[in-house]
Design a binder for these strands. Sequence first.
RNA 1: GGGGCGAUGGCGAAAUGGCAGCCGCGGCGGACUUAAAAUCCGCUGGAGUAAUCCUCCGUGUGGGUUCGACUCCCUCUCGCCCCACCA
Length: 1026
Amino acid sequence: MPTKKTQTTRVKTTKATKSKIAAKKKVVRQTQSPSHRTPQSLAGPFSKSEKYVPQEFESKWFEKWQADELYKTAPADERPKAYILDFFPYPSGDGLSVGHCRNYVPTDVLARYYRMKGYNVLHPMGWDAFGLPAENAAIKMKTNPAKLIAQYAANYKRQFALIGISFDWSREINSSTPEYYRWTQWIFLQLYKAWYDRRVNRARPIADLEKELAEKGTRDIDWAEPLTAEQWSAMDLKARREYLSNLRLAYRKPAWLNWCPQDKTVIANEEVKDGACWRCGTPVEKRMLNQWFFRITEYADRLLADLDTIDWPEHIKLMQRNWIGRSEGAEVKFPVDGSDQSITVFTTRPDTLWGATFMVLAPEHPLVEELTTPARQAEVEAYVKEAMRKTEADRTAIEKDKTGVFIGSYAINPVNNEKIPIWVADYVMMGYGTGAIMAVPAHDERDFQFALKFGLPILPVIERTDGLAKSFALGGTMRDGFADALRAESIPFEEKQGSLYITIPANKLDRYIEMAQEFVVPGKWNEIVGARWLFIFGKGDIWTFGGIESEKKILARCHELEPNVRHKRTVMEMLYAVEFYRDALFHAEYGAMINSNEFTGTPGDVAVKRVTEWLEKTGKGKRRVHYKLRDWGISRQRYWGTPIPIIHTDQGEVPVDEKDLPVKLPDVESYEPTATGESPLATIPKFVNVTLPDGTPGKRETDTMGTFACSSWYFMRFADPHNDQEPFAKKQVAYWLPVDTYVGGAEHAVMHLLYARFWTKVLYDLGYVPFVEPFKQLRNQGMILAPDGKEKMSKSKGNVITPDEVVKEYGADALRAYEMFISDFEQATPWSTQGLGGTWRWLRRVWDLELQPNNRPAPSATTDPADRALRRAMHKAIKKVSADIEGFRFNTVVSSMMEFTNAIVDLQNQVSAAAFDEARDTLLVMLAPIAPFMAEEIWARKGRPYSIHQQKWPRYDASLAADEMMTIPIQINGKLRDRIELPVGASEAEVKDAALKSENVQRHLAGKTPLKVIYVPGKMVSLVVP
RNA sequence: GGGGCGAUGGCGAAAUGGCAGCCGCGGCGGACUUAAAAUCCGCUGGAGUAAUCCUCCGUGUGGGUUCGACUCCCUCUCGCCCCACCA
């Protein structure tokens, strides 16, 4: 049983007010407020209250705003426009959480703010409705995805209304409707009918290409498969179509792709995270399928360069830069020994060519089969098969040991004509470069490991940049007195069990070589590694380790002299056995070239350039830029997506005529995915079989487009959402686009945000839009975490907080204000119900303040100081709130509003009626974007003309915001010693004079004269004292 | 392995190189109340002190630049994120 708490009398002296800063005045806050109840206890009979009960009026106002079309976008006009957009959501059955609101509330505040500032604002919303989650949910619930989406979207829409988001619903779009995807298909066809002309660096109609081919073949098109005009003319329709597909921006080709066995479809590279499907987390497999791609790689350079022109978070830009992954290097051809084949490799280190001791092909490389010798065939086939079977995650696991098999053939290193073995290994990826590498084990970590494991020679061809040189003198290899001699030369070493571990300073190298010759025991040897590579067998008997010949000779001699090393297959393997040498054997720096014939001695900073130039001149290779970016795989073997408008015939593929769009998704009973890599649409003969106008029978493409196609242009459709003649009128898009402010999560950094930029550039090239970047300003909202600890909100953890429950308890305005106030917009932060209570109390204080009667006196000399103080606070608030809204500093918007509220409360009993109302009205108008319901309700109760949301944003007046007095802190040697109050106009001399007169300053100066008196106007005085 | 972002009271946080901690939460004390809740008022980084004066310490660590550093530069630690056998 709990004991009754006895009275505890706390004897504690009441602390009196700190005088602290003079600006902080001791004003007693008094509000003649009615009593209030907690929001939690609001459940009661409905009545129009004097108190702040948001539940009584919020929904009423939203209905009225909708009925009055208050947020309907005006047609393009003379006003400046503001296009403020949220990532359009993928409606899910879970609805919105307070985390999602972090996205929608601030953009709504922006939209409302810019409307009041006189901008023509476009703030639309729609649904990214196609795609796997809806389809999977529909299969599970045995319903239709369209129905499900409609249901989910309705719920989202209800929630948006609940929290007062001012979307223009007359522009609502749904990407899964034929009215929308008709134009997604249309854009697909524009890509299909275009090719990238590298000479002018833009996309052009494919018809231009056909014309050019007919006239002069590929004479001027050096990146295409060579073709003469005669050859082109001789080609039949099918051959021409096949030829052109190698240049179209939308094309189909067989390729190894990421297959998600859970979703039973191919997914794009961008959708693979840590070797698994980004949606369901299932490890992806590789499958060879004939698939549709968009040739985004042609735009790699422009996608990279234009990042510099847009206002996006740096980390997002960086992710895109890394994803595009531009790297400069050279392509080098290695002829295959005894064959007319050759292997082309890409390298960023052409300066290491002389150290290439073997080649490696990716298991998928087309030459593997051809170049494998009969003797090696069984082993190679088994290896390749095994590699294909592995998931991407298995194959790329970092700790994994290197594996590989020699295929029996040799290549010729074009720079020194050395014959080097060709291997196949899964550490080489078909997807990057050419799928084949020259291995330079001395200067590439992976090649080094591989060479050590398989006993392949490792030949240093680049000098160390740190000059590290080491020698290990095994006990018995050097005559007595060697240690003493080293000491005499002050060459540092350690002695362990009779062996010496020597680190040779650069300036002692030559001396050391002399000594080693002197002391080495006949029949033994001493070696130097690192800065030099020398084997010292005796006086004048020094062999340099450099090049394949010396490798063989040194190894043979060591084997002969020392039985213990006979099992070592290479010189480096022998050296590697000495633990002490490990850090001196390998490096990947850009140093001077060594052991590289005529290039030996080329300094590290010019080596790559000189070798590349030489390769080009001698025709052995050429400069090349490679990108990590791959072409965008768009095919999905699923039902719920935009059908690809292509028909396959005996004569090749034929695009659906634009006037026959849309190719509609058939209504079906079952649309479960098949495991065969074929879309469920393929099982519907009525859909598949078509006859072309000329009577040719055809079969429709049955893959659908991934949803990122839909989202790559929806922001353009919002400019003209109901156009049934074209995707959008050029005039509308030219007025509204690009999007001024775009807000959403960072998870789309290399998916949607990259694809949308790409489509925009294509549409620009083809003349449909007048801009090259779709989103001028991008911001990512921070995540809202669960209240306890730092966990994410998730349905499975049961810690999701919905706007519905918050609105029920506190009203939408408090939710909105708290979403803004909670933290810096981009920062992840935990939700706090107590913090929410704080913003609720602030709104209630505003309510009371606004609705109390104004019985203050007329302006007079008595009220003048307070009136001026209040106006100052007001104009400062206008300035700060405006700047912070525009600068995405929503948390300080709310804190500035709170400060302004406090200022009115503090001064309310000293000001005139006019000043009081002026301040209250300004506060209310500025509150409108933040707390639209309450602002409207108070506005109405005060009898003002509807609607507060159509009022002008208050104007800032710098002269009224100006302070009369300033507080100048005084520092002595960096420490704060006093503050002085002076009129704002005080001159430098006056300030310095006042500072020196200060009692505290005098005391701390203790009679000394300052060496320096620094006055930063209006900011501070800094004294420097010896 | 490479790269990025971040670290400030008990908590969320603020601070064009110029008074660290605005605003809010929580806490403490008071007013009102029979009492509580709510509301209102005051205090609230740490230490010393009778003290509201005053002094010292304090923005993850250690250094540097500067009259002056949360802010700029370097080092390290921790946390989060991205990329990753990328040739």
